[in-house]
């Protein structure tokens, strides 16, 4: 009897302190590591999220830009942080699901506890506004005809690189790839006549005035309703760039639930919706459980994609 009483009291004590700790969370500012420089793509959307979560939770969120090596340094720092709920990270698809397969980094799919996904942007094929190509078929025909086609995008291994390789593979053509950079740099390359097309987010048309030939998403994109998807044209290439909030593995479930719930609330606030619309991001929310499964699936899926860019996978 006594042992069970002690066990009961001990159990209550643990439960109480856990709830007490939960009730107190967060007691101090929460650092959110953004693995890219301030003002970049990931940074802008990350700060919009942080702002919204600050309003929802009434807690202080501090963005930290930890740059380097294509986002891997910041991601590694997140993986190595204490799992106490006071260090989080805002990561796009590539850093957590692609980079670990490309080079030795001190983290993998078991280093993180996904909290929520907040955005998912499909990629699109864009060309110069005065380009003679009107559809993706024109572009493929030109490539087959031997014209010098140059695709531009980010560093090898980035989603822009993988996407154009997937398209080339699906159509059975080849072209040159120029890793000049994404977003504005890619647009500048196209306008200088150096590159023919880019495979970046669907916002490229709205922001830089390029012409969209096709969208690599599951369905047509809002604002680009008369642009067909690659799927519609019989080419099964779906490539999107998603962004999510992560915590180091081992963070207490109670903390993760609090954050996930706050995240769900945050993405529905006016300021968030407006901010993301201005930044040309398509909002897509996934809570903790769903995102956890999705993340693991993406980790495997992106590994399978790598041979298309010429990476030889070691036998696992």
């Amino acid at each position: 009897m006594r042992t069970s009483a002690i066990a009961l009291i001990a159990g209550l004590g643990v439960a109480l302190s856990a709830t007490a700790a939960l009730a107190d969370y967060p007691e101090s500012p929460i650092e959110v590591i953004i693995p890219y420089g301030a003002g970049g793509n990931s940074d802008t959307s990350g700060r919009i999220l942080i702002n919204a979560m600050r309003d929802v939770m009434g807690a202080d969120f501090v963005p930290l830009n930890v740059t380097g090596a294509g986002g891997t340094v910041g991601t590694a720092q997140l993986a190595g942080s204490d799992p106490d709920g006071y260090t989080l990270g805002y990561n796009p698809i590539a850093t957590v699901t692609v980079q670990p397969h490309l080079r030795p980094v001190p983290y993998n799919n078991e280093s993180f506890a996904p909290v929520c996904m907040i955005a998912d942007n499909p990629t699109s094929v864009t060309v110069a506004p005065d380009s003679p190509f009107e559809s993706i078929d024109d572009l493929i025909a030109a490539a087959k005809g031997g014209e010098n086609i140059v695709a531009v995008g980010g560093a090898p291994g980035s989603m822009t690189h993988i996407t154009q390789a997937m398209i080339a593979d699906a159509y059975g053509v080849g072209w040159t790839y120029l890793p000049a950079g994404g977003g504005g740099r890619a647009a500048a390359s196209i306008m200088a006549g150096e590159a023919t097309f880019a495979t970046d987010t669907s916002a490229m048309e709205r922001v830089h005035g390029l012409k969209t030939l096709a969208v690599a998403g599951a369905e047509r994109v809002e604002g680009l309703e008369d642009v067909p998807t690659l799927k519609e044209q019989g080419v099964d290439v779906v490539s999107t760039i998603w962004f999510g909030l992560f915590a180091p593995a081992g963070t207490p479930d109670a903390v993760l639930d609090t954050l996930s719930a706050a995240c769900e609330e945050a993405v529905q606030t006016d300021s968030f919706i407006e901010g993301m619309a201005n930044a040309n991001y398509i909002v897509r929310f996934m809570g903790r459980e769903e995102f956890g499964d999705f993340f693991q699936a993406e980790y495997v899926r992106n590994r399978e994609l790598l041979p298309v860019i010429g990476v030889e996978l070691p036998a696992q």
């Binding site: 420089g37 301030a38 003002g39 970049g40 940074d43 802008t44 700060r47 919009i48 901010g275 201005n278 930044a279 040309n280």
Partner: peptide
Amino acid sequence: AATAVMLGALVIH
């Protein structure tokens, strides 16, 4: 890099 930050801020607005 500095104007990149400003660009981000402008976009948010």
